[in-house]
Computed example of a mutant assay.
Amino acid sequence: MSKLVEVLIVEDDPRIAEINRRFTEKIEGFKVIATATTGEEAKEWLEVVQPNLVLLDVYLPDMKGIELIKYIRKNFYEIDVIMITAASEVDVVRHALRGGVVDYIVKPLTFERFKESLVNYKNKIEKLQKNEKLSPELIESLWNRQSNGKTVENQSPKGIDPLTLDKILKYIDTIGESGITAEVLSKNTGISRSTARRYLEYLVSQRKIYAELVYGNVGRPERRYFLTLP
């Protein structure tokens, strides 16, 4: 039996922290050993328990998550980080990439996406522990999200039709800087709004696009999707 992956959750919202804890403990091979609601509290836990993995939000009461990433990289190089956040600003994503974040999960969170991230992380760690020398194929697989031995990009998850997905991708390539909503995509591709939202959220999970809440003239926010910068 492989060693449990010990997890520190850093999230200021107690409800979301509890969801993350329950999700984590539903996945075999993981154990939550502490939860922090501020950056300073997270630093204390890092000193005491030194977890294998940190599940980190961007917006904390006393600092941004990207500041905590820098602290972890400087003081605990062996600790890995997965970000779970609604933040989609380019600067935040850029800092996450440069900080060596192993995955970036965009809220709203689903258990399927959460499980995929943690299982893939554990698979990569086990590959590194079992092999003294890696093949070129195995090295490349470490930089691609995988499930059951196949890259996610080559799979069609339940509810995602490849032909419909291709049609939507071609349309999204034309949206420009103004982005798109599920309603607009629905009208222009002939699919229902719920289907449009499902495909858009799938593309967010694949990092093909990202989402932001944009406030319109009447003050009601709408979820708008934008092409991810290359």
Rank of each mutant, 00 (worst) to 15 (best):
E47I: 02
R193L: 02
F30I: 06
E137W: 10
V106N: 01
K127F: 02
A36K: 02
G179S: 12
P157S: 03
R94Y: 01
N123T: 09
K167G: 01
A42K: 03
L163S: 10
P157V: 04
Y199F: 15
P108A: 00
W143R: 10
I180G: 03
N120K: 06
K133L: 00
D57L: 03
V119Y: 12
L229D: 15
A87R: 09
G65A: 00
G29P: 02
K158T: 06
K158P: 07
R145Y: 13
L200N: 01
S117Q: 09
F30W: 11
I105L: 13
S2Y: 14
D161R: 05
G176I: 06
S205A: 06
G99S: 10
V101C: 06
S117M: 07
E89R: 14
Y77L: 09
I172K: 02
E47W: 09
V54Q: 06
S186W: 14
R98I: 13
N217F: 15
R22Y: 10
D173I: 10
R94K: 09
T35W: 07
K26A: 04
R197F: 15
Y59N: 13
I209W: 00
Y59G: 13
E78Y: 15
D103F: 03
W143V: 11
E222L: 08
L163D: 04
F23S: 04
K127G: 00
E6M: 07
A196N: 05
E201Y: 14
K130I: 02
R220G: 13
V204K: 06
T37P: 11
E112Y: 08
E41I: 00
I172Q: 04
G176W: 10
Q50G: 05
A96C: 09
G99K: 03
R22I: 08
K208W: 12
S186N: 00
L68H: 08
